[in-house]
Amino acid sequence: MDFLAPFIEVYTTDHLRFLLEGFWVTLKVAAISIVLSFIIGGIVGTLRYAKIPVVSQLFAVIVETIRNLPLLLIIFFTYFALPEIGIEMEITAAAIAALTVFESAMISEIIRSGLNSIEKGQIEAGRASGLNYIQTLHYIIMPQALRRMVPPLVSQFISLLKDTSLAVVIALPDVLHNGQIIYAQKGSYVVPILVIVSFMYFIVNYALSMIARRLELKQI
């Protein structure tokens, strides 16, 4: 009973509501970052696939640089360094910007790899049928590539959701931050709070992983 006492004591309506408010911030930041990174990553990945002179090489350098930097460093840079050059953002915007930059680089590689997985002969067939390069990409290559991209994209989105927890270093009022505020009141609250926070992350990420698994099985 001594072990269970902190769980019973800390799981109050007010505490659970406070954690859910933080989890809503987590989901909101993740959702906005997913949408923005998918759009930006899709554009960058497609441009790199198209091998446009100079543009493709420039994006390749940018993407490889970002992919090889720790996300935590990008978060610090966005929130603490950018204001030094006149670009100031509030905490939530800074977290979204940092996550979007990092995840766009990751997603652009998924997009580029997916497009490259389609046989080159299909491009030639499309061009031979009278379609220009853009039409061939839009009507023939992209639909097939997207089916292959979906499982790794969902996996990347799961990673993004988990990565939002790193924004606690800039005091983003997410579920982990709110959890820290609660267990700072009493040392015995640490375990029960981290258990419930872990459960919240698990539920969403497990649901997404099941979606990814189903989509992957459809490809087999």
Rank of each mutant, 00 (worst) to 15 (best):
A184P: 01
S165Q: 09
H177V: 03
I140P: 07
V168C: 00
T136M: 12
F157P: 03
Y133N: 11
H138Q: 15
I134T: 14
Y183V: 08
P151A: 05
K162Y: 08
T164V: 12
L166A: 06
L161Y: 01
D174H: 07
Q135G: 14
A125F: 08
Y189E: 10
M200D: 07
S165Y: 10
Q185D: 09
L217Y: 12
A171V: 15
Y189S: 08
Y183C: 08
G179I: 05
Q156W: 02
P151Y: 04
V154Q: 05
G187H: 07
S165T: 13
L160N: 08
L137V: 12
Y206F: 14
Q144R: 13
A167P: 06
V191M: 15
V190F: 13
I141K: 07
M142C: 08
D174Y: 02
R213Y: 12
V191Q: 07
S129M: 15
S129H: 09
S209T: 04
A125W: 09
L194P: 04
R214Q: 13
H138F: 12
K186R: 15
D163S: 14
R213C: 02
E216S: 04
P151I: 01
A184M: 08
H177Y: 15
N178R: 06
L146S: 04
A167F: 01
I170N: 12
S209N: 01
I170Q: 06
N178S: 02
K162W: 11
R147G: 08
I211K: 00
Q219R: 11
I181H: 05
